[in-house]
């Protein structure tokens, strides 16, 4: 009898969270398989890729959760970040070539990435004030559809604008830090990758702290849960929405900048990161920030597993298939979504 009563809550708890349980077991199996087949190197590779997708997806989740905008110009923020980092880093690199200085060489890449972040934040403010704020004042009707079409338009304008001004050439760097790869557990990891991972984790951590512990961060969460309630306690909706959009754009720019050595900078570089970020948020649950972080790692796991066990050319196919399967079973994603706008509209 006692055994029965303790077993029942566990079973019902598993039943309630079936998608999470299934995907955790599935991920664990993939993780072990990757470790057996590829060793530490592939595991690190997965974790580092996961960090990138998480950083991008968090921005998408935030924008969707707070503003109900399905953001399809997120990849262009990534592109702008890559360009800004390229154009600030290469002059510094040339200068350092003629005037070697160890301290400055260590700091210069961080400066370039930070500049990209600031540029992204400013771009976010401009786009929000110029496009979404006027739309919001005019009508809230069919908001999600209108906002979606606008972001697609912004994406076209920005990537073709970059093509017009800078041309279709690839601009890139081979590495940020000119030092030897580091050995961790028998696997060699380039310093650039490790630092890119560290940056994504620090940025996500900072965002987390901001949302949980600060006054304005709490206001952002309040707006995502109840817009009217937020206004009634004295929160300026317009300010919070501009800030949120700016934060998301800055995060995408930072990831574009810190991955410059991997992706290079060219007008359509944002496509791949955008699609992966969307796989993540659709699979995890639209607007769910925590889900986006975990989802980033799940997608990375799927990617590495596909590369190891199927073929590199299938890398985008299998994550998509898994995403479709997840949505068939759990339409609001693995971790669900509590976005107010979707149900209301």
């Amino acid at each position: 009898m006692a055994k029965n009563s303790s077993a029942r809550p566990l079973m019902s708890r598993i039943k309630d969270n079936l998608p999470i349980v299934v995907i955790s077991i599935f991920s664990l199996i993939l993780f072990v398989a990757i470790y057996i087949e590829g060793g530490n190197a592939q595991i690190f590779n997965t974790i580092i890729t996961g960090g990138m997708w998480a950083l991008l997806a968090v921005g998408l989740a935030l924008v969707f959760g707070v503003m109900n905008i399905p953001h399809f110009a997120h990849g262009e923020s990534f592109m702008i970040g890559a360009y800004v980092a390229y154009f600030t880093f290469t002059p510094m690199q040339e200068y350092l070539y003629t005037n070697p200085n160890k301290f400055l060489s260590a700091i210069a890449p961080l400066g370039a990435i930070l500049t990209a972040g600031v540029a992204g934040a400013i771009l976010g403010i401009i786009i929000e004030q110029l496009i979404f704020a006027p739309l919001r004042r005019r009508t809230k009707k069919d908001w999600i559809m209108n906002a979606f079409l606008l972001t697609v338009g912004i994406s076209f304008v920005l990537s073709n604008g970059a093509n017009l001004v800078l041309g279709p050439n690839f601009r890139g760097i081979s590495r940020y830090w000119d030092v030897k790869a580091v050995e961790i557990g028998g696997a060699y990891m380039s310093v650039d990758r490790l630092i890119a991972f560290a940056i994504s984790m620090v940025t996500i951590g900072a965002l987390w702290f901001f949302l949980r512990r600060t006054r304005v961060g709490r206001a952002i969460r309040a707006v995502s849960q109840d817009e009217t309630g937020a206004q009634l306690v004295g929160i300026n909706l317009n300010f919070i929405q501009t800030l949120t959009f700016s934060l998301a754009t800055a995060m995408a720019s930072i990831s574009g900048a810190s991955l410059l050595f991997l992706f290079q900078a060219y007008p359509t570089v944002g496509g791949t990161p955008l699609y992966y970020a969307w796989y993540v948020v659709m699979m995890a649950g639209l607007g769910n920030v925590v889900g986006a972080i975990i989802g980033g790692f799940i997608v990375a796991l799927l990617q590495t597993a596909t590369q190891l066990f199927v073929a590199v050319s299938w890398t985008t196919v299998l994550p998509t298939v898994v995403m479709i399967l997840v949505l068939l079973i759990a339409p609001s994603g693995i971790f669900g979504s509590e976005v107010k706008g979707v149900q209301e509209q």
Partner: peptide, 15 residues
């Protein structure tokens, strides 16, 4: 009521 349903009572009050 327009409460922030995903937040604790304390957080609602602080807001």
């Amino acid at each position: 009521l327009n409460l922030f349903t995903g937040m604790s009572v304390r957080e609602n009050l602080i807001l």
